[in-house]
Design a protein around this nucleic acid. Structure first.
Lengths: 210, 210
DNA sequence: TTAAACAGACCAACCAGTCGGTCTAATCAT
DNA sequence: ATGATTAGACCGACTGGTTGGTCTGTTTAA
C-alpha cells in the first residue's frame, strides 16, 4: 500500500502518535522506543519510514506551517481591502488551532532543535507568513484605513504574538469556541489599528459585527 | 568567600554561561560537560553548586518569574485606577525583557521540561502573574473605564500573548527601544479595551501621551 | 519470484551524575 | 609567629544506564 492510500498507513500512525507524545512530554522527553511501542510497531518500522527522529520533527513542523501559509495566502487573495484582509488572515490563522493545536505546540516549543536544512526550510516559511501580515498593514496605512502613527513592524509582532500565544492556553473544551476567540482578536486588533476616519465610517461596525 | 560575595562566584558564572548556551541551543542541546568547559571549571565544581542540571534550569526560571512578579505587584500597588495600573504593569513587564531576555527565552522554551516540585513552584507564580492582569481588567470593567462587552479572560490572554511573544523577536540592537515598544503596546491595548466614555474623556490622551 | 514492509537483537556514543582525592585559606593551639 | 587541623571549593576519571540508529532476517502482497 502506497503512502496516501485509503487506509491509514504506519507512517501516518507514527506521526499522529508522536505528535501527542511530543506535545505532552516534549521532543526530548520522548524516545523512539516509546513511539514505536505506543504505535505497536518496531524500530525497523520506524526507520523504514523516517531517516531519523529529526526528520519526523521536521515533517510535523512542515505540515503545519505549510497549511497556515496556504490559508493566509488564500485569505489575502480573496479580499481587496486591507481591513478585510487582516480580518480574514487573523480568523483563518486562529482556526488552524482547532486542526493543528498539537502541531503548533510542538512547533513553537521545539523549533530551535531543528537542524541544518530542516531549520532553514521552516524559517523561510515563517518569514513569508510574517511578511503577509506586514504587507497588509503597510497597505492599510497607505489607503488610510489604518492609522499611520504606529510602527508597522511592532504592530505585526503584536498581532502575531497575540494569536500565536493561543497555543499556550487554548483548549477545545474551553467555554469559548475558536470562532469566538477569533472574533475577539479581530475586534481588539481593528480597534487598535483602524484610523479614526475608518472608525467613524460604517466600515468599523460593518466589519466587526459582520 | 561566601555566595553573594563581592567577586562573581563560580555559581554565578555557571548560571550566566548556561543561560546563553541554553538560549542558543536549548536545554537539551547543551551538556553539563559543555557548560563546565565554557566556564573553565569541572564536573566537580558544577555539582558542588547544583544538585542537578534540573536545579540549574529551575534557578533560571525562578529568578526571572520572581522578579517579574515583584515588579507587577509594585506597579499594581502604586496606582489606583485600572487604566494606570494596566499601563504600569505592561510597561514594567516589557522592561524586564531588557534585563532578562535570555532568562525569558529559556523560560518559555524549556519550562515544560521542569520536573516535580520545580514545575509546581513555577506554575504557581505564573498563575499569580496572570491573575494580576485579570483582576485589573475586571476592575476596569466595573469602574466603567474599560468596555465590558469583551471577555476578561480572552483580553488577558491577548495582552499576555502580545507581550510575552516579544522574547521571540526583541533585540537590544533593534531600532526600537524597549521603552518605545512598551508605549506602542500600551497604546494598542488601551485603544482596544478602553470604553468609549474613557476615550472621549481626556483620560485617554492623558494616559497614552503621558 | 521479488521488492517493499516490518521485526527486533544489537551497538557505539553519549551523558548526567558520582566519588575519592587535591588544593587553599581560614582557624586554632602552642 | 608557626605548624597542625579542618572545612569548603574544586578536580576529573569513571560508571551505569540510556538512546538514536543499524543490520540481518522474516513476512506479506503483488
Amino acid at each position: 500500500m502506497k503512502r496516501g492510500g485509503f487506509r491509514t498507513s504506519l507512517r501516518d500512525k507514527i506521526i499522529h502518535v508522536s505528535l501527542h507524545l511530543f506535545e505532552e512530554h516534549g521532543y526530548h522527553g520522548v524516545t523512539v522506543k516509546q513511539i514505536v511501542e505506543t504505535v505497536g510497531t518496531s524500530k525497523g518500522g520506524f526507520y523504514h519510514h523516517f531517516t531519523s527522529k529529526d526528520e519526523l520533527l521536521f515533517v510535523i513542523h512542515d505540515t503545519f506551517i505549510t497549511y497556515a501559509l496556504e490559508k493566509a495566502t488564500i485569505a489575502n487573495e480573496t479580499y481587496t481591502s486591507p481591513t478585510l484582509r487582516l480580518q480574514a488572515i487573523i480568523k483563518s490563522f486562529i482556526k488552524v488551532f482547532d486542526l493543528y493545536k498539537a502541531h503548533i505546540s510542538v512547533f513553537y516549543q521545539e523549533s530551535n532543535y531543528l537542524k541544518g536544512n530542516y531549520q532553514v526550510s521552516i524559517k523561510c516559511k515563517r518569514k513569508q507568513f510574517k511578511q503577509i501580515i506586514l504587507n497588509v498593514i503597510e497597505e492599510g496605512q497607505h489607503t488610510g484605513e489604518f492609522r499611520d502613527n504606529i510602527s508597522i513592524e511592532i504592530s505585526t509582532m503584536a498581532i502575531l504574538g497575540m494569536v500565536n500565544w493561543t497555543y499556550k492556553w487554548y483548549k477545545k473544551t474551553g467555554d469559548k469556541s475558536i470562532d469566538e476567540i477569533g472574533d475577539i482578536f479581530v475586534d481588539i486588533v481593528l480597534r487598535a489599528i483602524l484610523s479614526n476616519e475608518s472608525v467613524n465610517n460604517n466600515a468599523y461596525q460593518k466589519f466587526i459585527i459582520q
